[in-house]
């Protein structure tokens, strides 16, 4: 709903629409990767994917600042805590909700994941409120995110952080690709997605593969949330779901062909850059110009190439 709102906040601090677009696009790409993972593994559209990120970012913030019952810990530990939170949320979603919907129609599963997202958002709202925004702290003068020890001045930090974001995202993509095409675990996920019964017959533990996939998706969501948090500034409940990353992640995943990891990443980047430029250059008289342009891009791509940019199976 507010890709342009997000961009407005980033665009003002980051120099060009291109850089702002790449930053947002990397976040969309990360969300898209999680979406693609669960789609490949079980033909599920996970509407809670981005919300795993919000919750993890909040846990990271709580550990960084020592809010409430959380002890104040060094940044790397706080990030690890956030990643663990994401994995745990993925695991709990799978065990408590998704497994019970094994035979349910896909629309019901989709609604269940949306329900998980709504539950997490309202839980965050109850625990944190909306009146006091929580700012993701940036070490060194309150406006820096020096988690990786790069940045010194107000102007350079965004660029350095952008590069870190890109590298982190590329590493995650490469890792996922390696996991899927180089390990037995990846083969098992694909086997289970194609024929659960046969996969069980050949000795794959279908239950634990499914749970592991969700843990992985949760960690991916956490990476997206923690990467996005410093750019968002004031964190509000549901900022990953309600402010663009979820929907733009979905659009990116579909643009790239819903089954391709590199495609999802490229698609996410594309959505980020296109909506950044559209937000910059569309006339102000057209409200929501960026979203309309992205919507047109998606429709056009699907009409010309229904399998998406890099997709093979539909």
């Amino acid at each position: 709903m507010s890709a342009h709102l997000v961009l407005a906040s980033v665009g003002s601090t980051v120099g060009t629409p291109l850089v702002g677009g790449i930053v947002n696009g990397a976040v969309y790409g990360l969300v898209a990767l999680g979406i693609v993972l669960l789609y490949k593994a079980g033909r599920i559209f996970n509407f809670a994917q981005a919300e795993f990120g919000t919750a993890s970012a909040f846990v990271t913030v709580a550990f960084l600042q020592g809010i409430g019952p959380f002890p104040k810990v060094p940044a790397p530990l706080a990030v690890v805590a956030g990643l663990i939170t994401g994995g745990l949320l993925g695991f709990l979603s799978e065990r408590l909700i998704i497994t019970r919907l094994f035979r349910a129609p896909r629309a019901t599963v989709l609604v269940a994941t949306a329900g998980i997202a709504l539950f997490l958002i309202s839980l965050e709202a109850v625990l944190l409120g909306v009146s006091t925004p929580h700012v993701f702290p940036r070490v060194g003068g309150q406006s820096h995110f020096a988690l990786f020890g790069t940045l010194q001045s107000n102007d350079s930090y965004k660029f350095g952080y952008t590069e870190i974001t890109m590298v982190a995202t590329l590493l995650v993509v490469a890792g996922l690709a390696a996991l899927f095409f180089r390990t037995r675990y990846g083969m098992a996920i694909l086997a289970v997605s194609q024929e659960p019964t046969a996969a069980g017959v050949v000795g794959i533990n279908v239950r634990s593969i499914s749970a592991l996939t969700w843990v992985l998706a949760g960690v991916l969501g956490a990476v997206a949330g923690i990467v996005n948090a410093p750019f968002t500034g004031a964190l509000t409940p549901g900022f990953m779901t309600l402010n663009g990353p979820l929907i733009n992640g979905f659009i990116g995943a579909i643009l790239g062909g819903i089954t391709s990891f590199p495609g999802a990443f490229v698609g996410g980047l594309l959505v980020g850059v296109v909506s950044s430029y559209a937000g910059q250059y569309m006339p102000a008289a057209v409200p929501g110009g960026a979203t309309v342009v992205v919507a047109a891009l998606l429709l056009f791509t699907l009409l010309v190439r229904p399998t998406g940019l890099l997709g093979q199976e539909v």
Partner: peptide
């Protein structure tokens, strides 16, 4: 009525 698409097909 089961609404189309059949089982979600997930493991």
């Amino acid at each position: 009525a089961s609404h189309g698409e059949g089982p979600s097909g997930r493991p």
